[in-house]
Design a protein around this nucleic acid. Sequence first.
DNA 1: TAGATTGTTAATCGATTAACAATC
DNA 2: TAGATTGTTAATCGATTAACAATC
Lengths: 222, 222
Amino acid sequence: MHYPGRTFSAPLIRRLPEYHAFCESLANQGQRTVSSTAIAEHCNIDSIVVRKDLENIGAKGRPKIGFIAAELIDAIHEYMGWGMLDELIIAGCGSLGSALISYSGFSRRGFKIIAGFDVDQDVIGTKINDVEVFSLTKLSNIVQRLHVEIGIIAVPPEAAQKVADSMIDGGIRGIWNFSPCALNVPRSVIVQQEDLMSSLVILQKSMKPQQINSNTAKEIQL
Amino acid sequence: MHYPGRTFSAPLIRRLPEYHAFCESLANQGQRTVSSTAIAEHCNIDSIVVRKDLENIGAKGRPKIGFIAAELIDAIHEYMGWGMLDELIIAGCGSLGSALISYSGFSRRGFKIIAGFDVDQDVIGTKINDVEVFSLTKLSNIVQRLHVEIGIIAVPPEAAQKVADSMIDGGIRGIWNFSPCALNVPRSVIVQQEDLMSSLVILQKSMKPQQINSNTAKEIQL
DNA sequence: TAGATTGTTAATCGATTAACAATC
DNA sequence: TAGATTGTTAATCGATTAACAATC
């Protein structure tokens, strides 16, 4: 089934917050309107991209004037779903897990981590940034009782599959996986892979396009 | 300039580590060869994707037999550039910065964080996981002396632009930005944006396609 | 009016998917 | 040989880019 006009795509979701931040800063400076060209310039992208994106989320502008900043802010806010509260749990409360629990961005955007889970007896029972840490053995049960739908995995790769299984047992439908490994899940469960290592390699490769190309050329002539 | 055959694309870079891990586990079990279909099944993707990817990195297989696991492991290792050491510095040693410094995956793949920077006097002078933390005012100077090319930004968004500026002053050519804000940099500098918030929203949206679609349909008929 | 900016339709580009021939 | 698997060429799909008409 395909609905034209209003699409949901990852690149779009990644650009919208930048527009939002820019519009907010303009609005705070007392500016009422904002043009797609101004947004584009600030974000270092083409204005056509901005116009297409705004079309996709249903924002309406006026020729010569642009978009009403306040309207745009609201439209992005609503499209991103920042209005409604969503509750998460996290498995793995090591350094990365703790950092995620303490990350202030989540609460600002309607996400709330309501429980942490770990195997370390020293951590279980403590609170990290007001979030209580339970034993991993209780995960499935607590998830079920609290009807949580999204779980974060921040455990070592060896333990990730088992954690995923108990999350799914408890009724989790979406997994945000920081562990660098493929998870085996039923088709109804969505996995969002967050591979930090790969992001770093992509940056590294982007910095040396000529080197990649010369290798390429060499290989081809063989 | 376009070199066909061997391309560099982000999706490819994100898939290769999964193939690598799978091949390694097979090799450890004493298996000598691996087929694209086996990799595909393990990673929950289509075997055509795997074959295209392996073609892109220059791996050669044999019909009916498949690929030699050890060769594939080496080919991916080399293509990912995991062989050579690359040094990084990080600005911002709060909870996220500390987690990144302590992340074991980096050293396993040839990345080494050699210095941290912060404004907090209580943190400056301490060591996190053997990495010394300096004052942010020294960043540009130290980067220049050590010829570091990649910098990580894990400071609050308000401070990010200023940090980026001093990184670039010092000669940094690639910035891995965990701060949810657009950076203004010269064209020669590459920015890899790591917006955790957006990743989470993408997961959330992927979980509710029907809801998105019904909104879409409603909007269109208006 | 003139010019700037939106909005829409078409073209391009790259990645994914499909089809099928080659080959061990 | 027969069947499985690679490798290659073409088709599809979606996102980006371009061109230009509409309009304030």
